[in-house]
Write a protein that binds this DNA or RNA. Structure first.
Lengths: 218, 218
DNA sequence: GCATTATTTGAGGATGGACTCAAATTCGTC
DNA sequence: GACGAATTTGAGTCCATCCTCAAATAATGC
């Protein structure tokens, strides 16, 4: 019996066999590719199935509707981000503010292939916005945590404000690098410069001194 | 006779009477509001007509299709931007780099109500992308021009790179200010700070000396 | 091999939204 | 106030896309 793991919509089934799990992977991969290319709205369920080498009925077996596909993707992306930010927080302890700025901005470039449809998904307007808000929240919390590891004594609220700015810079950089013929060729480097300048300035008061004590000013 | 001003699609008509011109205004205003709120895709032609207090047939009298509505809006926005950037170029001659940074970032806030659907429109995926590219190009050219007025001697290509960055900062600021519960409350100010820091740094070499000669360094 | 459950399939239902058009109405002009 | 032209109207067409479902097929355990 398809034991519907308690409280899915009308029809949402977990795959029970290896083949099913495999299919779900293929479907999500296809969905992520297509949504990254064309955007959420413009991607059709038929296309997703087709690119995954499946038929539309299979897609609807594992996902009750299009929104569920998007949600599943966002969930996965959140998991990736959590991992990466956890790793970042560890590295941050050993980094100077300058170096952290570079690491942060490069992080996204590295991360990009693993969360390629994230921006398309975040722009999509669906009913369940909480999941997207959670994704944003995780990202900001992750970056803020890294900042405070690097600059202990940095005010909690300020760290989150700075993190919000950093996150948006990363988003812009992604869009500059992704688009077909977006902006002028030097723009991405300018953006990096700006980011570096900004973080260096903001974290300067908290620069660690040789004896490990921060010299924050009142 | 509806003299179809040479080469519209199948049916595109210019309004011939005051009432028609008025209606077009109302329709575009409604479309701009809705698209700013909901995005391009999510806005339906029926809604646009309804919000303008018109019936769908009236909408289709003046616009052959949905894309034409979007294009008309982008055109108008471009016109607004051209005006504003022309005015900015004049002011820029009297401004220090610091002041220009502030003026630039505030410009968008002022401008926002007049081009409210621009970001939604720029994100929309339609066939005719050239119009959107032109809009981007105008904005970058306008900002770059202001930069070079303020900092004569600034390299042309570099000015455009910086302009691209500035434009994106403005876009981020707009999204921060517009969204429902987007980011932390201090983030917009942080963004302003960063922008200021960046422009001041980039234009420092070209700061005007009292005798009107720039002291650019090699 | 047989029963049972998981997965696949694809035709078709339902919906919504872009777009049409012929008839009615209003406006401007003489 | 009558004529033609501009505008309004809204029911109706068309079509893309989401989603359903009963029957076919494959895998698993005994």
């Amino acid at each position: 019996m398809d034991s519907n793991s308690s409280r899915g919509k009308r029809t949402s089934l977990q795959p029970m066999r290896a083949a099913g799990r495999q299919r779900v992977e293929e479907l999500l991969e296809a969905a992520s590719d297509l949504m990254a290319e064309r955007g959420y709205e413009a991607t059709t369920m038929a296309e997703i199935a087709a690119r995954a080498g499946a038929k539309i009925g299979s897609l609807y077996r594992f996902f009750p509707n299009k929104e569920a596909v998007a949600d599943a993707l966002v969930q996965r992306h959140i998991a990736v981000l959590e991992d990466e930010y956890a790793a970042l927080a560890k590295r941050a302890a050993t980094l100077s503010p300058d170096a952290l700025a570079d690491v942060l901005i490069e992080l996204l470039v590295t991360l990009h292939p693993r969360v390629k449809s994230l921006s398309a998904l975040m722009e999509a307007r669906t009913d369940k916005m909480e999941i997207r808000d959670r994704a944003r929240g995780h990202a900001i919390a992750g970056i803020a945590a890294a900042l405070r590891v690097c600059a202990p004594g940095l005010d909690e609220a300020l760290a989150r404000d700075i993190a919000a700015v950093v996150l948006n810079i990363m988003k812009v950089l992604r869009s500059m690098l992704a688009k077909d013929a977006p902006t002028t060729s030097g723009a991405p480097d300018e953006l990096r410069q700006m980011h570096r300048l900004y973080l260096t300035d903001r974290l300067r008061p908290f620069r660690r001194t040789p004896d490990g004590i921060t010299d924050a000013e009142p």
